[in-house]
Design a protein around this nucleic acid. Structure first.
Lengths: 174, 174
DNA sequence: ACCTGAACACCGTTCAAGT
DNA sequence: ACCTGAACACCGTTCAAGT
């Protein structure tokens, strides 16, 4: 006789995200996730193939979250950059995981759309892809360096972010 | 009576780098490294505190390698960018590890010097730090995206690299 | 002084047995 | 149909015993 389900994929993924931010990737063990959703570790295998698949679900949920934030901007590169930075600071571990082997190949496909739109408005359709790659690479690299504490030579990191945002937008405007 | 050493820290680090490139970070187990240097896993703890310390040594050796390559360029940003890309393609796993929690905080301090020099020549001392952060963030982000297969929207990735290199140098020249 | 086997803790994963 | 305890393989790490 079937008993009512005691958890769900969505609950498992949310638990994974919460534990990820609290402890980093190594803390996202099957046992920790299971405990948080009120179940034993082997039960998770009814909803996810293995730990890698669970992490991939966490990454996809994080990427969808990011996409929603970028879509909520005014669509300009400056606001997109600011929203991207806010996101990375709120969910540093999730942000990092986005660019890891744990990430499913197309996780960020939707998130690229608003960036492409903004770039097409600046440089036209022909150069939009190259421009989007320039902008995305810079923003992603900057945030990863900021989060990993790589900016250790002093100076104002907020000012460096604004400096680069303006120079890049100008480089894509002329 | 002391017996002659059967391995060394340098040999252990080199073994770690080789295994890293062959198998990724998860393959760098104490047993795999020990086997490669001809010793049992517990012996490694005579030279390195724990696995994290071993990975930190691997990162530092990789960073020093990168510094040497950048110093061997003509000192211009275009050549630095090209050398950085060659390095990332030759040692993708080591390159990735550079921007991970495994990296010791100051691992890339020396590698930043040639970039700062190149930027100072373009924008002057006042803006050199901001400019170096712009360039480094872009290059690092671009290479990580390229290596992780994040460029999935078609187009010529080599051309995108050149496009961005030129736009960024121009943005830092005017 | 370095090296090792044995042991322990911890984790991912499988599976037969429960409801 | 989902859930669980028990079991297994694997890994990091410690330590007493060897040389």
């Amino acid at each position: 006789m079937p008993t009512p389900d005691r958890t769900s994929l969505a609950a498992i993924v949310e638990a994974g995200r919460a534990i990820l931010e609290a402890t980093g990737p190594s803390g996202v063990t099957m046992q920790a996730v299971a405990a948080r959703v009120g179940v034993r570790a082997p039960s998770l295998y009814k909803r996810v193939r293995d730990r890698d698949a669970l992490l991939a679900e966490v990454v996809q949920a994080t990427a969808d979250d990011l996409t929603a934030r970028l879509e909520r901007t005014d669509g300009g590169l400056a606001e997109i950059a600011a929203a991207y930075r806010r996101f990375a600071r709120e969910q540093p571990e999730g942000f990092r995981l986005l660019f890891t082997a744990s990430a499913p190949p197309d996780a960020l496909r939707d998130a690229a759309v608003p960036v492409l739109r903004a770039c097409e408005a600046l440089v036209g359709a022909d150069e939009a892809l190259d421009a989007a790659r320039l902008f995305t690479a810079w923003a992603t690299g900057f945030l990863q360096m900021e989060l990993s504490g790589a900016f250790r030579l002093g100076g104002d990191v907020d000012a460096a972010f604004d400096y680069a945002t303006q120079r890049i937008i100008r480089a894509l405007t002329t």
